[in-house]
């Protein structure tokens, strides 16, 4: 009966983001927030483990302004409880700060055997939270996991890597990071939505976690965020189809070599 903590991040829905036509900066006001995609895969995996072997699934989340509705949705998917903190200084791009705060929330969640995280977040894609949490707690970390099994208190993980499939094993407690391939997150059912309203969301202040604002000062800061400007060449080729194919192939080869 492993007790599992799942780290979820509230991000802007980058698929809705459009760059400002002049500044090329993303227009955040037009995009809604959501739970980062990979984190829902992590939660789904935790729920499947609980369905097979019991245990408790807690969700932890830290951010500048956590939308409780999104956390409630993770409870509607099946998580048992949530531990969250909102603080303006958490709008950071520093993975160290994020992992530090999350580790304190994990401690608030109580005893745990497994921490599941998305490999990376939808917005920053830094791939840092899982490894850093493993470092903080001094436990093994398995990354890029596409299949996970637990037997006799040990984890067995299948990892899809560029050079092939790795199968790794470790004891618990441990941290596992997953991507989209591992499962398809469930939609909350009506009865689970109803049940979610009665599940606890514990919200903390910084001092409740034994942290100070100084500890949230980032060592990495974001200087600029802009979309890449891509302009079409508007090249028109004319001629017979076979000649056009040749010309097109020449251009493509030349462009590829130029890179």
């Amino acid at each position: 009966m492993p007790d599992i903590v799942v780290c979820v991040k509230q991000t802007v829905d980058v698929y809705q983001l459009k760059p400002h036509p002049e500044t090329l900066e993303p227009v955040f006001s037009q995009a809604q927030s959501k739970i980062s995609d990979f984190d829902l895969n992590a939660l789904e995996e935790a729920l499947r483990i609980r369905e097979k072997g019991g245990g408790r699934v807690s969700v932890v989340s830290a951010g500048p302004s956590i939308n409780q509705l999104l956390i409630r949705e993770t409870l509607a998917m099946g998580a048992d409880e949530a531990h969250i903190i909102s603080h303006p200084l958490l709008s950071t791009y520093d993975g160290r700060v994020t992992a530090t705060v999350l580790s304190k929330l994990v401690e608030k969640a109580g005893r745990w055997d497994l921490i599941l995280c998305g490999e990376a977040s939808l917005d920053n894609s830094d791939y840092q939270t899982g490894p850093r949490l493993a470092e903080i707690f001094g436990v093994p970390h398995l990354a890029y996991v596409t299949k996970l099994e637990i037997s006799d208190g040990r984890l067995k993980a299948w990892k899809s890597m560029e050079d092939g499939l790795h199968v790794a094993s470790c004891s618990m407690p441990a941290v596992v990071t997953v991507g989209l391939e591992i499962n398809t997150p469930r939609l909350p059912s009506l009865l689970m939505i109803r049940a979610a309203t009665k599940k606890p969301i514990h919200e903390y202040r910084l001092s409740d976690l034994g942290l100070t604002e100084e500890e949230l000062n980032p060592s990495v800061t974001l200087r600029e965020l802009k979309a890449l400007k891509v302009e079409r060449r508007r090249v028109k080729l004319e001629g017979k189809p076979e000649e056009l194919a040749e010309k097109l192939a020449d251009i493509l080869v030349r462009e590829a070599l130029a890179r």
Partner: peptide
């Protein structure tokens, strides 16, 4: 909150 969750779940289905 329940109404919003119901709306989203139905939309996704």
């Amino acid at each position: 909150e329940e109404h919003m969750m119901i709306r989203k779940a139905v939309r996704e289905l």
